[in-house]
């Protein structure tokens, strides 16, 4: 057949990367293309970042575009906001998402509202990259997943890649749009998640979820590090004859409701999995949205598997994090409803 014989487009060159390398690659590409882009944060320059995500940027772009800051989260985000509303494209790093709170005021009251407050005169194209999540025995303050605070704040976009491919493509897309983005990176998977990543430029559009596994009995919704757990879980379900569809949201807000509803309307069941505490976690909003829009297509109430409503614990971390057995119980609840 003609179509089959046609030469496929030349395969983009790819390279095996982990998430750290993918983030680093995205920053380098965009910094080469756009002189307005710069990175700043604690030890991001000379030292290359505590997780090494900004390694080599100082050497290539110099101290004015890979700016080392002291411990000063409010100062880092505030400065980045000032540069953003003045036409630059700062990418600030907060070493751990748990340290973002000293800058909460600047993010929620300034970055999120600058465009709106100024009647659209001052866009604030700022990116805050920050590693989030548990699973590394970090205890209370090196493990949290604070995405819901920011999703709750109109004006901020919230992105959370799961794979190296998406990390690079989403970060490139984020650096090329005009709103403030909190870019949560799954630190537990920083080096563990490896994949083929195109070496050149490409974008993964924001606001698009991805169906990473097709299925017909139940939709499993996750993002970031939990997407990996959920994907492995879907494999085990398949062995038991349960066909799960898996969604990786990728952008948490604005959320891709179209893809979610399409899947849930097909399977009639949804289980949402996240690490953050349950109450007012993003799962609550997703569940509400699904019930509001797809009530009559549902075979069972939407289920949530989440962290508990407690601070993040050190020794009981693995009981705190959504486990396969808790996910299985939730799936069974939807199937046996």
């Amino acid at each position: 057949m003609q179509a089959v014989q046609q030469k496929a487009p030349p395969m983009a060159q790819t390279q095996t990367m982990n998430i750290i390398q993918a983030v680093n690659d995205a920053l380098k590409i965009q910094m080469r293309k756009d002189p307005r882009v710069l990175v700043m944060g604690e030890d991001v320059g000379k030292f290359g970042g505590v997780f090494r995500a900004t390694q080599g940027l100082y050497q290539e772009f110099g101290p004015n575009r890979a700016i080392d800051t002291p411990l000063s989260e409010g100062g880092i985000i505030g400065t980045a906001i000032g540069m953003a509303i003045y036409g630059l494209r700062p990418v600030a790093e907060i070493q751990f998402a748990d340290y973002i709170f000293p800058a909460f005021d600047q993010l929620v009251n300034e970055a999120a509202k600058y465009r709106y407050r100024s009647g659209g005169q001052y866009p604030c194209p700022l990116i805050v990259r920050t590693p989030y999540g548990g699973g590394i025995r970090g205890g209370h303050y090196h493990s949290q997943s604070p995405e819901a605070y920011f999703i709750h704040t109109p004006g901020l976009k919230v992105v959370c890649p799961a794979t190296p491919y998406d990390a690079k493509g989403l970060l490139l897309a984020a650096m090329r749009q005009d709103d403030p983005v909190i870019f949560f990176e799954p630190k537990r998977m920083y080096r563990a998640a490896k994949g083929e990543v195109p070496t050149g430029d490409y974008e993964v559009p924001l606001e698009q979820a991805k169906v990473t596994r097709e299925g017909k009995h139940v939709t499993l919704i996750a993002w970031g590090a939990m997407w990996h757990t959920v994907s492995e879980f879907a494999e085990t379900l398949a062995k038991d004859g349960i066909s799960a569809e898996v969604l990786d949201l990728r952008t948490l807000w604005p959320v891709d409701l179209t893809t979610i509803l399409k899947s849930v309307e097909k399977t009639g069941r949804a289980v949402i999995v996240h690490e953050a505490p349950r109450t007012c976690g993003f799962g609550a909003e997703l569940s509400a949205l699904i019930h509001e829009r797809a009530m009559l297509k549902l075979e069972a109430p939407v289920q949530r598997v989440t962290g508990f409503d407690t601070p993040f614990p050190y020794s009981l971390e693995h009981d705190y994090m959504p486990s396969v057995s808790r996910m299985r119980a939730a799936v069974d609840r939807t199937l046996n409803y």
Binding site: D98, Y99, G139, H140, P313, Y314, S315, L316
Partner: peptide
């Protein structure tokens, strides 16, 4: 065992804790 190394507290010593948040 909830906090580990960075979160030691002891009310009997009026020791108000380690703290992993700088400052």
């Amino acid at each position: 065992g909830r906090g580990g190394s960075m979160h030691l507290f002891d009310v009997s010593k009026r020791f108000y804790g380690g703290n992993a948040i700088v400052a």
